[in-house]
């Protein structure tokens, strides 16, 4: 047997696997263009659910709230998470290091119901009014850990001699970080920001615990609507979200690819001139 041959077994398992992953999403998108109010029976092509969605103030307010929370929390989480990654990879030994890395990894696998409940109890204990800021702070806390993991996996492969060269040439540590390290790890920081942004966009459980009256996010709105039954408006809304997120991911991956390409070009030039 030639083990490198692309066998039928592999083709079949890949096709079935990707069909399983994508068919539900494709069906959801197709039925958002359904004329009929019955979500599962095709009644002809129509875009009326998109129009009715845009006229639905409840959804629009929730979408605006979700977007604000996601942008603010992703930005702060990226800063904090990058700092945490630097501490984990470059920080060396310090007291509480094990505790620190434990607090970075634990939120990744912590059930959301526990994270949500515990943050709510803290907010109640300190008497903080629940609303936009409590949701945002909760989202920063769990997404900064994802950011830390993404950025630290880039930092381990970072060639530290570049930074040392900058320091030898008279750069101070802070400007060496901003002029050398940051531009090189930038693609992973962009990816981490996008991850934090979509995590926040997605979150139902933690937002439900930590929000107060007047602060409803899109997932909370979708959830309460879904509990009442299927609605073509939800399909339309889902389709819009899927398209936005897919575009973001594809752009991000192209960016990373381009920077990898550039890097290999520089390396070739360097080799040629050497």
């Amino acid at each position: 047997m030639n083990v490198n041959r692309f066998s039928w077994f592999n083709i079949t398992s890949l096709t079935l696997g990707f069909a399983f992953l994508y068919i539900p999403i494709l069906l959801l998108i197709v039925f958002s263009f359904n004329e009929s109010k019955l979500v599962t029976v095709w009644g002809g092509f129509s875009t009326k659910w998109y129009t009715s969605l845009l006229q639905n103030d409840g959804f629009m307010d929730a979408a605006w709230m979700t977007l604000k929370v996601a942008v603010v929390s992703a930005t702060i989480a990226t800063v904090l998470g990058t700092m945490a990654a630097l501490v984990m990879i470059r920080g060396g030994l310090f007291r509480g290091r094990t505790l620190f890395s434990g607090m970075i990894y634990a939120p990744l696998v912590m059930p959301e119901v526990i994270t949500g409940l515990s943050l709510l109890l803290l907010f109640v204990a300190v008497g903080w009014d629940r609303g936009f800021w409590t949701i945002t702070v909760a989202h920063i806390t769990f997404s900064m850990c994802y950011v830390a993991v993404v950025v630290s996996s880039r930092l381990v492969t970072f060639d530290q001699s570049l930074e040392e060269a900058a320091l030898d040439l008279g750069c101070n540590k802070v400007s060496a970080f901003f002029q050398i390290t940051l531009p090189i790890i930038a693609p992973s920081i962009v990816a981490a920001w996008l991850l934090a942004f979509t995590l926040s966009l997605d979150d139902l459980v933690i937002a439900s615990f930590t929000s107060g009256p007047g602060a409803t996010t899109l997932p909370m709105k979708i959830y309460s609507q879904v509990r009442l039954g299927l609605s073509p408006e939800i399909n339309a809304l889902s389709t819009i979200l899927i398209v936005i997120v897919s575009c973001g991911v594809i752009v991000a991956s192209l960016l990373t690819k381009r920077s990898a390409l550039k890097k290999s070009q520089y390396e070739q030039q360097a080799n040629a001139s050497a």
Binding site: L21, V39, L195, D202, P219, V226, L230, I242, S246
Partner: peptide, 19 residues
């Protein structure tokens, strides 16, 4: 292609299965 569905909302993917 494996990662892409993970980026789309969890709630939406579960909702898709109801239909």
């Amino acid at each position: 292609l494996i990662i892409l569905p993970f980026w789309t909302s969890f709630l939406i993917r579960v909702y898709a299965w109801i239909g």
